[in-house]
């Protein structure tokens, strides 16, 4: 059922394409950079958060989460390109299980998203983020991976049912942006209006961003244990949703 060679080669293709698309690397750094400077620097003196946290430090993990969210959904949706250029047919006609093909895409996309996440952390540090180095700091990589897996699977699932990019802009507006705004990436979840707060509790990114804060900054709303559990559950659910979409969707 699981063909490791197929997963490996599909992963390898994603990495090769990533390395060769230099403009993509620049493009994916610019948006977080703008947010950190435009939002972080300007609101830093205006916004006072409870505890001893300044807004810029609060924002950096949120922006890491944001860039992971957008890259991941985009990576997943790259399946629409594969469809348009006919390459997906070539993959789907091979004797590999749909789940292996989906896993290859997910792991490939997650790898490139991880690289981007780490880059954004580095940019944050260069701009003055006070990284707290503790025993759990490196666990931020696990959170990044789980955020990536969740949202690549989402992108793949949506992409499986679309045949061109026309509908994809709408998806970004109606799915990606709400996920971003109602996640505690920009403001603490606890300050959101009650209704939105409950929406945020259902959003995996909320726990992802909180987990990034717990590991990178040392403060969190839910605690690292709950964050990790929530992200694991969402990753597993989304991988299954993606595998289902892959067999049911329009993938030729």
């Amino acid at each position: 059922m699981i063909e490791f060679k197929a997963i490996y080669v599909i992963w390898l293709r994603e990495i090769k394409r990533f390395i060769r698309a230099k403009s993509r690397v620049i493009g994916m750094i610019v948006m977080p950079l703008l947010f950190l400077i435009g939002l972080g620097y300007s609101f830093n003196s205006l916004v006072h958060l409870s505890g001893n946290v300044n807004y810029f430090d609060f924002l950096v993990p949120g922006i890491v989460g944001m860039s992971l969210l957008f890259t991941s959904i985009n990576n997943g949706a790259s399946i629409i390109w594969d469809k348009q250029f006919g390459f997906l047919k070539e993959i789907m006609v091979t004797p590999n299980s749909r789940i292996s093909i989906a896993l290859g895409k997910i792991i490939g996309g997650a790898s490139t998203a991880l690289i981007q996440g780490v880059l954004v952390v580095i940019i944050g540090v260069l701009l003055g983020f006070s990284l707290s180095v503790t025993a759990v700091t490196l666990v931020f990589l696990v959170f990044m991976l789980l955020i990536a897996i969740t949202f690549i699977s989402l992108g793949l699932a949506i992409g499986s049912f679309m045949s061109d990019f026309q509908g994809f802009g709408i998806v970004m507006q109606f799915v990606a942006f709400p996920l971003f705004f109602i996640s505690g990436a920009l403001v603490p979840v606890t300050t959101l209006p009650t209704v939105l707060k409950y929406v945020a509790y259902l959003n995996p990114l909320t726990y992802g961003v909180d987990g990034l804060r717990a590991t990178l900054l040392g403060t969190s709303t839910f605690g690292i244990g709950l964050d990790l559990t929530a992200m694991l559950i969402s990753s597993i659910i989304m991988v299954f949703v993606c595998a289902w979409a892959f067999t049911k969707g329009n993938t030729t």
Binding site: K5, V9, R13, A21, F85, G86, V93, T94
Partner: peptide, 29 residues
């Protein structure tokens, strides 16, 4: 047991010719 050459192009043009073939070979184990 089958091979297919599609009517519409189905290559990854960001890969080299050889890489496209390696990709295929590995998918066919």
């Amino acid at each position: 047991n089958i091979g297919i050459v599609f009517q519409d192009p189905s290559l990854d043009d960001k890969l080299t010719g050889k890489e496209n073939l390696i990709f295929h070979g590995m998918l066919y184990n």
